[in-house]
Write a protein that binds this DNA or RNA. Structure first.
Length: 646
RNA sequence: GCCGAUGUAGCUCAGUUGGCCAGAGCAGCUGAUUUGUAAUCUGCAGGUCGGGGGUUCGAAUCCCUUCAUCGGCUCCA
């Protein structure tokens, strides 16, 4: 007999060699149907593997990532089987589970090109195979056996993968007629896979290397219940409805023109209003926190970026330098604000007493992004950062860093992003030539970030290899209204630029000392942030951000004069208001204004004209009753104040 | 940049295997109506079918090329 300890602390005895699935069945047959994987002594395993020693056991139901992972990974094998059945000779790369579903990278070989119509075929085949309740069978083999098997099949991708594995046992999983190299774990059988959707296909370089062959990647998702798939498809629809590119066009916020150039957003009047509100809001916060605003040009001498190191790192992949006709100088479009800010710092002498020096700019930068990478406002070639640089003494760094964390969280709170995660990005220890700066400074900078985040009790994940080339960083991700994650602000420690720009301050010892720099943005960029706000609110901006606060809807043209008076009063009171003087019925005017997502609809007819009032209707909520115009002005101003206060 | 897909009016979309002046709804403009909380009616106008080239008696439809967009990959200071 062996002792099994459960997460609730209880311990039960079972006979040696029992499987997790059998344990689940003994607890309840229903549980056995709802578990998809097990963690045995901390190791994630198939439910059907036997347990031979005393162990702790966690059974994973759908809610656990481990369960979804096993489910989708098994589904990717099922998809591979379907593909192999339909298109014999297809070679297989990798087929992992991902955050939402799974994919498989395949090489169709010969002349075959996969198209959307193949997706339906694959989907139907998967459903057919799934209904056969094929069992997933694990088999441990030697490296040589595995190599033999896949060489015989002629699958060079698999043999390459096996070749990279350590000697020893290698696990294979089979279901039906398909066998794959795989670490597992997998479902007991395909029975659990009740709903299947093959979503899309795309190209993907073999092993992520652009010099190697491009394979066909097929994405899919599966669920244990049809209802779950239906819900997921509804979610995808909802995301589509919130697409900032669509809403941006609809609400006339921004546009793109191939004549101007791809990836170069054109901000229309209403979009500019949103930007202005955000900038005013942020400027107010910065003033209170001791920042000083600066302004720098959109281009800079090439030598500036050679000094900063940006030229060496990105010069070849940037917009190329602009030449002067006479002086023989070269200028680059500004890809970063920091070199300019360093020169501002350098323009005056600094005492240790004056630090930290917090310098902020809404600075527009230009970066050449590959054409295939451009995406709405979230990936563009021209964007405005809410950029700031803190120049401080080494002994101030920790506190300064923590104060920025506070600032980021404070801003998120006002903006109603209550769910967020933070990611610490460190160097790739195996690829140090990617980075500039001394070993000593990197170690210092990485420790500073890790400790500052810990002192702020931030829940963080640490990722190596994601650091900027000059320093480690702390990134913030927020969750939006429908659960999607967006990366916003970033804080980066930099010992490097101060060195390169020879920045100094006078210490109490009257010697010159080197300051430390912190780069940070909170919105990330105005473009990206507005995109996130649009998707988060589905275009229904909070009052303070709405480009137009209200629209006056006269019941009939008879009241247009009175409506005009109201319009004047409101606009004079700084409440951006529109009017709809068309000879439409009030229902139509209301509908149109609701669709334009204008926060307040002000209906005026005979009663209102007589009493000097307006009938207020709040968007999405309906009639709020009549109000005096002055009261409405006060009300709106109060509402806005409430929204941007914590 | 790479792989795949898409491109018809301001927007959303029809347009069967190539065949009469390329259609609809919404938006726009006319005119009528003067309306009380999510769509009043009439009429009109609007399109080099993304651009260029080709095949054909004939191309939105087939082929080539180019541009842009979408989904990914690579990249992201």
């Amino acid at each position: 007999m062996i002792k099994i300890k459960f997460p609730d602390g209880s311990v039960r005895e079972y006979k040696k060699g029992i499987t997790s699935l059998e344990i689940a069945e003994q607890i309840s047959p229903r549980l056995a149907k709802e578990v998809y994987a097990a963690t045995v002594n901390g190791e994630i395993r198939d439910l059907t593997r036997s347990i031979d020693t005393d162990a702790t056991l966690i059974l994973h139901k759908w809610e656990d990532e481990q369960a979804k992972h096993a489910f989708w990974h098994s589904s990717s094998h099922l998809m591979a089987e379907a593909i192999e059945a339909l298109f014999p000779g297809t070679k297989f790369g990798i087929g992992p589970a991902i955050e939402n579903g799974f994919y498989y990278d395949i090489d169709p070989g010969n002349e075959k090109v996969f198209t959307d119509s193949d997706l339906v075929l694959i989907e139907n085949k998967m459903k057919e195979l799934a209904s056969k309740n094929l069992t997933y069978v694990r088999k441990d083999v030697s490296k040589k056996e595995a190599l033999d098997l896949f060489s015989k099949k002629g699958d060079e991708y698999k043999t390459e993968l096996i070749g990279d594995l350590e000697d020893g046992t290698i696990s294979l999983y089979s279901q039906g007629n398909f066998t794959d190299l795989c670490r597992g774990p997998h479902l007991p059988s395909t029975e659990a896979i009740k709903a299947v959707k093959v979503l899309s296909l795309a190209g993907a370089y073999w092993r992520g290397n652009e010099k190697r062959k491009m394979l066909t990647r097929i994405y899919g998702i599966t669920f244990p219940k049809q209802k779950m798939l239906d819900d997921y498809l509804v979610f995808l629809e909802e995301a589509k409805k919130r697409d900032h590119r669509r809403i941006g066009k609809e609400l006339e916020l921004f546009t793109f023109s191939p004549k101007v150039g791809m990836g170069l957003p054109l901000w229309m009047p209403k979009g500019s209003e949103v930007r202005k509100s955000l900038i005013d809001f942020m400027t107010g916060i910065l003033r209170k926190r001791g920042y000083q605003m600066v302004t720098t040009p959109h281009i800079g001498n090439v030598n500036l970026y050679k000094t900063s190191g940006h030229f060496e790192k990105y010069g070849a992949d940037s917009f190329q330098p602009i030449n002067t006709p006479q002086e023989g100088e070269q200028f680059m479009l500004k890809p970063m604000n920091c070199p300019h800010h360093c020169e501002i710092f350098n323009a005056t002498p600094h005492s240790y007493k004056d630090l930290p020096y917090r310098m902020a700019e809404f600075g527009t930068v230009y970066r050449y992004e590959q054409s295939g990478e451009l995406h709405g406002l979230t990936r563009v070639r021209s964007f405005t950062q809410d950029d700031a640089h803190h120049f401080c003494r080494p002994d101030q760094l920790r506190e300064e860093f923590k104060s920025i964390i506070d600032l980021v969280l404070y801003t998120f709170k006002i903006l109603n992003f209550n769910e967020y995660t933070a990611q610490i990005s460190l160097r790739d220890p195996d690829n140090k030539q990617k980075y500039i700066g001394s070993e000593e400074n990197w170690i210092k900078a990485e420790n500073d970030i890790i400790e500052a985040a810990a002192e702020k009790n931030l829940k963080t994940i640490v990722v190596t290899g994601e650091a900027a080339f000059y320093g480690p960083k702390l990134d913030f991700m927020v969750k939006d209204a429908i659960g999607r994650k967006w990366q916003l602000g970033t804080i980066q420690v930099d010992y490097n630029l101060p060195e390169r720009f020879d920045l100094t301050y006078n210490g109490s010892d009257n010697q010159k000392h080197r300051p430390v720099m912190i780069h940070r943005t909170i919105f990330g960029s105005m473009e990206r942030f507005i995109a996130v706000m649009i998707e988060n609110t589905a275009g229904k901006f909070p009052l303070w951000l709405a480009p137009d606060k209200a629209i006056i809807l006269p019941i009939s043209e008879k009241y247009n004069d009175y409506a005009q008076n109201v319009l004047q009063l409101l606009n004079n009171s700084d409440i951006c208001t529109l009017i709809d003087e068309r000879s439409e019925k009030i229902g139509k005017k209301i509908r149109d204004s609701e669709l334009r997502r204008i926060p307040y609809l002000l209906i005026v007819g005979e009663k209102e004209a007589e009493n000097g009032t307006i009938a207020v209707r709040k968007q999405g909520e309906g009639d709020k009753g009549a109000m005096k115009i002055d009261d409405f002005v006060t009300f709106i101003k109060e509402e806005i104040k409430k929204e941007i206060a914590v």
